[in-house]
Amino acid sequence: MNLSLSDLALNAGLAASTVTRYINDKSGKLSVTERTIEAIAVYSGIPKNVLPGQRRLPGFGESETVKYDARQDGALPDWVNTAIAAHKGNRNGVEPWLMKGWALDQLGILPGDILMIDQNRRPKAGDIVVAQLTDPVTQRTESVMRRFDPPFITTHSSKMGPGRPETVDDDRVVIMGVECGVIRPRQ
């Protein structure tokens, strides 16, 4: 990423010494917390426990997006849950989803953003959608956020580079809902 250790730490929202102290430790006695690893993974776009340059099969691993759970995704300001409730109102089929990956960073959707997804809305060209990808061999599924460019869903990411478009076939690739709002819980 052409960053110094200090810049990497600061851009990930950490103190510079958090990373430099660990990397420069010759004794091997210092450790790094899960929170630190997660912050660097979110900023860099490189999943935890994957070294840069390692490839995994596209689309099947840890989901890029998950339904937002205020109990599990705690530590967010109270105004986030208030904003979610206000946006949802009394509409059925509108649910918050947490973006975990960088697949749509060129469209302004970043890891940690909460997207309100309307499961009753029909997608149109250019919409951001939540889709479920199923591996036909293993039957494993993954939830992803993509841009709908009929008949495909596509990534728009400067961090991940170009991604392979997936054809929406309502079997292996199924659109589950359409974005109808974004909440950014951080500055």
Rank of each mutant, 00 (worst) to 15 (best):
L133E: 03
T33E: 08
R121Y: 02
K159N: 13
I117R: 07
P58M: 14
P162C: 05
A12I: 02
V32M: 13
G126E: 06
G161D: 05
Q72M: 12
L30Y: 06
T18L: 06
K124E: 10
D169L: 11
A12N: 01
E38K: 14
K29R: 15
V50H: 10
S6D: 10
T134D: 04
W79P: 01
N24T: 14
P58S: 15
V19G: 02
R186P: 03
D149G: 07
E179Q: 14
F152E: 07
T134L: 02
A131G: 00
T154N: 14
L133W: 04
F148A: 07
G108Y: 04
W102F: 06
V129W: 00
R186Y: 15
I183Q: 00
N2F: 09
I183P: 07
G13P: 05
G45A: 09
L5W: 03
D149W: 01
A70P: 10
P77W: 08
D171F: 11
P150T: 10
G89Y: 07
I114R: 02
V144A: 01
V178Q: 04
T155W: 06
P47V: 00
Y68E: 09
D127S: 06
R55D: 05
G101S: 15
L107P: 01
V130Y: 01
A15E: 10
A41C: 13
G45Y: 10
M99I: 14
M1Q: 11
D7C: 05
L104N: 01
R56S: 12
G112N: 12
H87W: 00
P150G: 07
A86E: 12
Y68P: 10
P52K: 03
P77N: 12
D135H: 03
E62A: 15
L30E: 12
G163K: 10
E179W: 03
E142C: 03
I175E: 09
N81C: 09
E34Q: 02
T167V: 10
N24M: 10
T155K: 13
G89Q: 09
G112P: 08
M176V: 14
S158D: 09
L10G: 01
L30V: 11
L51Q: 13
T65L: 15
N2R: 13
P123N: 01
L107K: 07
R122W: 04
K29H: 14
G181R: 02
K26W: 00
L104Y: 08
L51I: 07
V137D: 06
M160N: 14
V50P: 04
R121E: 07
V66N: 09
I109A: 09
V32Q: 11
K26V: 12
D69K: 13
R122A: 07
P136K: 01
M160R: 15
V144I: 15
A131P: 01
M1R: 12
G89F: 05
S143I: 04
R35H: 15
I37Q: 13
H87I: 09
S17I: 12
T154C: 15
F148N: 01
V19H: 05
G28Q: 06
Y43V: 03
T18Q: 07
A15M: 08
K48V: 15
R186A: 13
